[in-house]
Design a protein around this nucleic acid. Structure first.
Length: 582
RNA sequence: CGGAGCGUAGCGCAGCCCGGUUAGCGCACUAGUCUGGGGGACUAGGGGUCGCGAGUUCAAAUCUCGCCGCUCCGACCA
């Protein structure tokens, strides 16, 4: 490819709207352009990179027996109603109507479509296991698209689905995918971690999230300094020092606390209690099976609730903090004076049914202080199991850096930012049951197909690679997904002998099977060097002053080192380099 | 959805408060001359519905109202 004819609109200055590094470099290097919030056009460089990524995805999916499909992006509502997700998913789905008024949507994922194919065509366990996948555009009406290709409204995803006759089969399929994912991210030059994560509204029994560490990431990951424990904070736990409370009174004692609104207030109030001896009481409205239910969540005073944990712990599709009026109606007090003692009875009196869920960190605690459900009054001497009797104990707390690892003896947790690049789920029979996808097993019995679902964002791979592979001068593409293997830079295109040498080398490299960009623009050498660094081609071969002596310069983008190489050797040299390492 | 900011040439910005010639600067672009190894110099040019719509005014990029779009923080994020 000749640079003079290839569309690479590089930018000298940083675009004002781009904050994160990958976004800035994608724009400056002429790789993408924005069409609308969360919607980007792929320019020729982007397309070359994306195709390389997709090739790796295909090789690894095919390598574990995957078969590539291409499914519609436009779906009828019916199929989403069958799985129950038409109503379970809210505004994030793009919905539309056709000319007849029939409801449709743009696919945000394809469980339903693949399941319906399996349901119609697969009859016997003998046809299983199956691994079906596709690389497709997905649509999600994100409430807040951001950071270039990191959070998009239309994006490209490789989504794979496994179909097995039983759980053991699913375990094998899941492990195959897990290993394939590790190979994929390694080949793409991404430093990643596999973490435990919430399955969210996806449903299912287990999931692993693949994340790439970057300050621009939106997820928080907790890892152990000692063992291999790693989890998204929406799932992470830690080991707390055991607290032995001294015995309290036989029953809670109410006391007035004028002016006390917060946990903090009560720590300094005379007769109050330190935060770790208080019970934090939060009222939430949870959507459980399409029904809004009030929930009282209890945590230790110095602990932070994690809303995803609350939703997961309740089996809710959504949770939101209750509003002040809702709280008063339910418990007869304002948020600063709430507590679990007698809360259910009060709610019942208000013709409502309150569910109480308590964080495991409160288990066995007694002689605690909490609100009295009476403005500016609190209770001391509360024994949680005796006086509150929560409906459920579960993990609700957000872990913090420095806490002890839940898995090993000596480890301490570190918390860092990362972006999600892939997610694999054991779906089980959620979709096969709701949509009636069954096979006959070996005993001639009809059983629901056991499914898994496995996604990788192509755009996010590009983003993560740039986040992790760049310097002050631009992108440093790993060889595996670089848009070109090398660039031949002719320092002065007006010097006929240099131009001729460049043309010849360009052809020789191409014949050797390399993807070459020939910088034949009538620009000064400095401009060409800056552009080559910016777009991040792994190798640059400069044809300049020494060409008359049969010598060219070989520059490696990643190390920024260069060496003189005889023109006669350069093709073989670049060929061997391009095939080795990252 | 809550909060903040921005919208003037392809990109980055000034002008707006305090309304008043022909709306300016840098980069990029076109032509020419010189130059030619880390974003070169000079000369001459082209390019603008000042986001859109109403209003106030003799007069609006500038003031007022409404709308739209984009960015950031938070909520949210199959």
């Amino acid at each position: 490819m000749r640079w003079s004819k290839f569309f690479i609109p590089t930018l000298r200055e940083d675009p004002a709207d781009a904050e994160v590094i990958s976004h800035r470099l994608l724009l400056r290097a002429g790789i993408i352009r924005q069409l609308s919030a969360g919607i980007y056009s792929y320019l020729p460089l982007a397309q070359r990179i994306a195709l390389k990524v997709m090739n790796i995805l295909r090789e690894e999916m095919n390598g574990i027996g995957g078969q590539e499909f291409f499914l519609p992006a436009l779906h009828p509502a019916e199929i989403w109603k069958e799985s129950g997700r038409w109503s379970a998913i809210d505004d994030i789905m793009f919905r539309l109507k056709d000319r007849k008024g029939a409801e449709m949507c743009l696919g945000m994922t394809h469980e339903e479509i693949f399941t319906s194919i399996a349901r119609n065509e697969v009859r016997s366990y003998k046809q299983l296991p199956l691994v079906w996948y596709q690389i497709q555009t997905k649509f999600r009406d994100e409430p807040r698209p951001k950071s270039g290709l990191m959070r998009l409204r239309t994006f490209t995803m490789k989504d794979a689905y496994s179909f097995d006759v039983d759980e053991a089969g699913l375990d094998r399929s899941f492990e195959d995918q897990r290993e394939a994912y590790q190979r994929i991210f390694t080949r793409c030059g991404i430093e990643f971690a596999i973490v435990e994560a919430s399955s969210g509204a996806m449903g299912g029994t287990a999931s692993n999230e693949f994340v790439a560490r970057t300050p621009a990431g939106e997820d928080l990951i907790a890892t152990c300094s000692n063992c291999d424990y790693a989890a998204n904070v929406e799932k992470a736990t830690s080991r707390l020092p055991v607290i032995e409370d001294e015995a309290g009174p036989a029953a809670p004692e109410e006391f007035p606390t004028p002016g006390v609104r917060t946990i903090e207030d009560l720590t300094t109030f005379p007769g109050g209690a330190e935060a770790s001896r208080q019970i934090k009481s939060l009222v939430y409205m949870a959507t459980i099976e399409d029904e809004a239910r009030p929930v009282l969540a209890l945590l230790r005073g110095d602990h932070q609730l994690h809303e995803t944990k609350l939703a997961d712990g309740l089996g809710a599709t959504a949770v939101r903090p209750a509003q002040a009026e809702e709280i008063r109606e339910l418990l007869g007090a304002s948020a600063g004076s709430l507590g679990g003692v007698g809360a259910k009875e009060r709610a019942t009196a208000a013709k409502s049914k309150l569910f109480i869920v308590a964080d495991l960190g409160l288990k066995g605690r007694r002689n605690m202080t909490t609100g009295a459900n009476k403005d500016e009054h609190h209770l001391r001497g509360v024994d949680i199991e005796r006086d509150i009797k929560p409906d459920r104990w579960t993990d609700l707390r957000t872990v913090s850096a420095g806490e002890h690892c839940p898995r090993c003896e000596t480890g301490v947790l570190d918390v860092y930012k990362a972006m999600e690049i892939g997610h694999i789920f054991k779906l089980g029979t959620k979709y096969s049951k709701s949509m009636g996808a069954h096979v006959l097993n070996q005993d001639g019995k009809e059983v629901p197909i056991v499914m898994g679902s496995y996604g990788i964002g192509v755009d996010r791979i590009m983003t993560a690679v740039i986040e992790q592979n760049h310097d002050a001068d631009g992108i440093i593409w790993p060889k595996s997904i670089a848009p070109f293997d090398c660039v031949v830079t002719v320092t002065n295109i007006k010097q006929e002998e240099l131009r001729a040498a460049g043309e010849k080398l360009y052809e020789d490299l191409g014949r050797a099977g390399l993807e070459v960009l020939l910088d034949d623009r009538d620009e000064r050498a400095g401009v060409k060097f800056k552009d080559a660094d910016l777009i991040g081609i792994p190798y640059r071969i400069t044809i300049g002053k020494k060409a008359a002596d049969g010598v060219v310069e070989l520059f490696e983008r990643r190390s920024k080192t260069s060496e003189d190489v005889p023109l006669a050797d350069i093709v073989a040299r670049v060929q061997s380099l391009a095939l080795s390492g990252l």
